[in-house]
Amino acid sequence: MAVVAGCGADATPDLADVEERLADLEMRADAADAERDALADALATQHAADQDEIVDTSASSSTTTAAASTTTEVIFPEPAAPDASPFATVFGDLGELAIPRGAPGELAVVATTDGLDRTGSLGIIVRNNTPAPIGRVEIAVEAQLDGEVIGTGESTRFQPTVVGPGEISWGYAYFDVRTFPEGTTFDLSVTSEPLDGRSPGLKVIEVNQADSYLLGTVENQTDATVDGPMTITMACFDAEGSFVGIETTMINNYDIPPGQTGSFDTRILGVSCDRGLAAASGYYYG
């Protein structure tokens, strides 16, 4: 039987051929490893670049929002005319008054009389330098000498009882003495009551001086009856426009219906009061 060499399962491979094939495989493996390393390096480089881009994009898209400034400017009122209130009336030859402005933003004392009058009272004028109307003014006063308190006084009913921005109100603080030693100073603390609508104003329509008396007429210009006690307070000035005193008295009527009038009269025992400012008010009890 003839046998053909290299064609059977038991044929023996040529050694040179095997070595050549092995060398080829090893070369291919080296090339694959080199390619794998190159791809890995490229992937790492791309990943790093992507991370940098993300950081840059995040930084560029971040927005810093500064807090908006919301400072609100408070506008304080200009000083109003002495009779700006609808319930303030000038009487006599008053002329121009140089009433100080006072500190802005406060209910400020702008004038006082020079010491106490015959009744032991200190006349006071205040101005509302706030942006809103206020109710009745109240003042506590300490008389001081050489740093010591030698007397205290409380205010009576200031008029007008409603004080608009820039407007003034006048009244007095009463002490239980008639005079203080020379050098006495007065420390005043000013407050106001809230607007409650319980102290309506009366319009002073006439003030006359007859000898040592002041007398006149008030009118209820509201739509409801004004009840007593009703009072009128007058700030008195001299010919030069200086504040010299306060006169106050009761309205003679028990009540005044809408549109009706009432009368007052008072004897002047102290300084002259032939020119000044007058305001009156009463109460609502309904």
Rank of each mutant, 00 (worst) to 15 (best):
A278N: 05
I256C: 03
G262I: 00
D274R: 08
I256T: 00
Y283W: 09
V271G: 12
G282I: 03
N252F: 00
T261Q: 15
V271T: 10
G259A: 05
N252V: 08
A278T: 06
G282V: 06
D265I: 07
G276L: 01
G270N: 02
Q260S: 09
I268E: 13
R267A: 08
G259L: 11
A278C: 10
Y254V: 15
L269M: 08
D265F: 05
G270P: 03
D255V: 00
Y283V: 03
S272Q: 09
D274Q: 02
G270V: 12
S263Y: 09
T266R: 01
Q260A: 14
S281P: 09
G270D: 12
A279K: 13
R275L: 10
D265N: 15
L269Q: 12
V271K: 02
I268A: 08
S281M: 11
Q260P: 05
A280G: 05
D265A: 05
I256S: 01
A280Q: 06
A278W: 04
A279D: 13
C273K: 01
V271I: 12
G282N: 02
R267W: 04
G276W: 00
R267S: 14
G259Q: 05
R275I: 07
Y254W: 07
G270I: 05
G270S: 03
Q260H: 04
L269R: 07
N252G: 04
